[in-house]
Write a protein that binds this DNA or RNA. Sequence first.
RNA 1: UGGGGUGUAGCCAAGUGGUAAGGCAGCGGGUUUUGAUCCCGUCAUGCGCAGGUUCGAUCCCUGCCACCCCAGCCA
Length: 560
Amino acid sequence: MSDAPARDFIRQIIDNDVSSGKHGGAVVTRFPPEPNGFLHIGHAKSICLNFAVAAEFGGSTYLRFDDTNPGKESEEFVAAIKADVRWLGFDWQDHLTHSSDYFDQLYAAAETLIGKGVAYVDSLSAEEIREYRGTLTQAGKDSPYRDRSVEENFDMFRRMRAGEFADGEHVLRAKIDMASGNINLRDPALYRIRHISHQHTGDKWCIYPMYDFAHGLSDAFEGITHSLCTLEFADHRPLYDWLLEQVDTPHRPQQIEFSRLNLAYALTSKRKLNQLVEEGVVSGWDDPRLASLAGMRRRGYPPAAIRDFCQRIGVTKKENIIEMAVLENSIRENLGEASERRMAVMKPLKIVLTNYAADITEQLTAQNHPGRPELGTREVPFGREIYVERDDFMEDAPRKFFRLKPGGEVRLRYAYIIRCDEVIKDDAGEVIELRCSYDPDTRSGTGTSDRKVKGTIHWVSAEHAIAAEVRLYDRLFKVPDPGSVDDVLTALNPNSLEIVSARIEPALGDATGGVTYQFERVGYFCTDSEDHTQGSPVWNRIVTLRDGWAKIEKQALQGQ
RNA sequence: UGGGGUGUAGCCAAGUGGUAAGGCAGCGGGUUUUGAUCCCGUCAUGCGCAGGUUCGAUCCCUGCCACCCCAGCCA
C-alpha cells in the first residue's frame, strides 16, 4: 500500500464525511479573518489548513472578511490580508466574501428567531447584563425584559434598526438558558446598536450582528461544510449549532476546533504586536523581525517554506509551542535548494597578498550552486588586495580553528591557498590588516599542486567589491513566550538587529527584489524591499547557515 | 463549587487491545575547496498518576492529578 503520511484528526473526519456522503460529498472551507490587523504565522497555519484540505478533496475555500464590528475594521487591513494570503500561495478564486454581504439575510434570520419566541430585545444596560449573567460557578438570572411579547420584540427590533435608539440602549438576545454551565448559552447578544458607518454597507445599518450570530449563519449561507477554528471557540459550538437549528438553515456546516500555533520567541498577539508597531519598537507591521506575514515576506522567507512548516507541525487539539528551529529548518531546506551562491564579507578585514602583482586582476570561476551544476558558473575578480571575514582570523587560535592564524594556511574559496605572514595592528592594538602570501600552484581547478589545507574561507576583491548595508536579524525576544509577559518591552532582545557595512561580490550589483542568495559560509540573504537601491544596497539576512563551529566553541567552553 | 478542552522523548506528532511511526533538536561517525549540504548510526522497557479488566493495555473501565480556555453590546 501507500506510505502516505498520517492524517490529522480533521482530515480523518472529512474522510468519513466524504465517504458517507455527508454534504453530498462536498468539502468547502473558509478562512475568516477580521480586518482589524495584520496576519501572522498563526494565521498561516489556519490558511494552509483550510486551503490545503479543500484542495485535497477537490473543494473550494472562501476568503471571508468577518466585518461585523465597524469602527475596529478597515479597508486597509482588507487589502493587506488579501495580499498576504495571495503571497502565501493561495487562490480563493471568486470566493471572496464579507459577513456584511449577508446583513440582509442575517436580519431576516433575527426576525425568524423573534417570531419563534427564541430571541428578545433586552433593555438592560451593558453593566446590568453583565451582573445578570452570573459567574463561572453561579447561574445567571433572567432579564426582566426576557418575556416581552413577540409583537413587542418585533416592534423594538425594527425601531432599533430604524435608528430610534442610541448606542447601547437595547440589544437583541437569544433566549436560551441563563442557568447553563456554558456561559455562551446564557442568552448571548445577537445584535447591538452602533451608529457608525460601515466600510462596506455605509450608513444602511445602525445595528450590527455579533460574531456568534453572523459566523455560523454565514457559514451556512456559503455552503461551508467544515468550519475550522481554534480551540477557544469550542465553547461556542453549542450556540453555533443552536442557531443553525433555530433558523433552520437548509445547509448545516460543522464546526471543528484545533489548537492555535505558538512559535517560541515570537509574538502572535494582535494587541501586543500592535503595541510594538505603535510605540516604534519595530519599523512597522512589515518589520523583518516580526512573525507577521508581511514581516516574513520582507525578511525573505519563501512562502513555500512557510507552507512546508505548517504541514510539518501537524494539526491537533493540544496546546503547543513550536521551536523556532523547525521553522528555520524549513527555510534553510527551501533556500539551500533554491538559492545561488555568492561571496560577501560581513565584517571586512583587509588582506594584502605581498607576492601578488599589484596591477593584475584575475577572473576566477565559481560555481553558482555546487549541488546544481545546471545553474552554471560566474566569474569572480581576484587581486592583490582582498577582504576576508574578521571572524575568520584569530591571533591566538585554538588547535581546532581551521581558518587564518599567524603562520597558518587557509584556502580562499575558488582561489588560492594563502599563508598569513604578518599581522598589522593600529595604535590601540586592533588588528587592521594582514600580510599574506599566496601559492600560485594552488589555483582552484587549474592548480598544479594537490596540496590540502583544513580550512576554506570566503573573500571579496577589495578593488571590485560593492559596499552594502547588511541587516543581521536575530530573534526579537529573549524569552520563549513573549505573549505571556505582561510588558513585552521588557522581553525584547537588545541584539535583534545588527547593521554592518559589508562588502559583497560584484555579481550581486544588479540583484533585484525577490531573489534569494546564499552568501557562502554566512547565510541566506535578499535585498530589502523597502530600502534597497542599486546605488545604496541594503540586504536582509533571512537566516544563518547552521553553524558547526559555534557548537565546537560551546563544547570547548563547557569542557573548561 | 460551573462548563469545555488537553496530557506519548527537549519540541512537535502517529499509533487507540498484540508488544511505541516520522520530523525538528541533540549525540557519535563518514564525505566535503561552504566547520554548510549530503550520508550512516544513535536517541521512550516507555505513553500524566494509581488501581482494575484481559493471555496481553498507550489503547477498555474506575478514581485522581496537571495544564489551557470561557463571565465583551470583541472576534
